[in-house]
């Protein structure tokens, strides 16, 4: 049977039946910016950062099935402008103070802001008041940085089988909660060994007493920007780098 391809920015990328645009791109090591997508979890298409144009329509790359011959626009000024705007909204909606955040250098939101050349927040800051949950002996929750990607919700429910996290409220009032009567993480079965403790793309779920232990220069995105880390692998393999 003939192999099937999609064209991402003109580059032919093979895919297997049932794969999404994102899955095909990840296998081919083509970078499509994203926050809520994680290859180990079912796609949910909520952050919209992976929006691409497929055959002229805006779609979420993480949920749109690839189709043979589909022309996908990914790395274009139009799409990156929209992604930048979405990032700006995420930044102002929470309290993302990179200068004193221990996830700085390891944070996917920050890395994408650099990648997409976000220079200012542009919108007025919301400055929400979200108290920390430091009740757990091993893990701190800083809700100020939550971007509602639900990765922790999915990991705790689908992998850990504990249902520790959930989203509550609607619209602008939507927020991350802990599934306990007290609302405190200490009153759940949550453990540092849980998958949910290690999937947060920002700085909400943090191992206690470890902040800033990794020096500047050795953090995840210090050496290579996030896009280069994906695409650099492909080029290194092909001998370009």
């Amino acid at each position: 049977m003939r192999a099937q391809y999609i064209l991402v920015d003109g580059l032919p990328i093979p895919f297997e039946e049932g794969q999404t645009i994102m899955q095909a791109a990840m296998v081919a090591e083509v970078f499509i910016p994203h926050l809520c997508h994680h290859p180990e979890f079912k796609p949910q298409g909520s952050c919209k950062l992976c929006t691409v144009k497929a055959n002229g329509r805006y779609v979420s790359a993480c949920t749109m099935p690839a189709k043979d011959g589909m022309e996908v626009e990914n790395n274009s000024p139009d799409l990156n402008d929209k992604r930048r705007t979405m990032l700006q909204m995420l930044f102002v909606e929470g309290n993302h103070f990179c200068p004193s955040c221990e996830q700085s250098g390891n944070c996917r939101l920050q890395a994408l802001a650099y990648e997409l050349e976000m220079l200012t927040p542009h919108f007025n800051q919301f400055y929400p008041d979200r108290p920390l949950d430091a009740s757990h002996p091993e893990v701190l929750l800083d809700f100020n940085r939550c971007i509602l990607c639900e990765l922790c919700v999915r990991a705790s429910r689908d992998v850990d089988g504990k249902n520790v996290f959930a989203l509550s409220g609607r619209g602008i009032g939507k927020h991350l909660i802990v599934n306990a009567e007290s609302g405190r993480l200490a009153d759940t079965a949550f453990s540092l060994a849980d998958k949910a403790a290690h999937v947060c793309p920002v700085g909400v779920i943090l191992e206690k007493r470890r902040g800033f232990a990794i020096p500047i220069g050795r953090r995840r995105y210090d050496l290579e920007p996030i896009g280069m880390q994906v695409e650099g692998q492909a080029r290194r393999r092909s001998g370009e780098l």
């Binding site: 200068p99 004193s100 955040c101 221990e102 108290p131 920390l132 430091a134 701190l140 943090l206 206690k208 007493r209 470890r210 902040g211 800033f212």
Partner: peptide, 14 residues
């Protein structure tokens, strides 16, 4: 106040 102590040396230098 209310911040984790390991964040303090980085925060206060601002």
């Amino acid at each position: 106040q209310g911040r984790p102590y390991w964040e303090v040396p980085v925060m206060v230098q601002r």
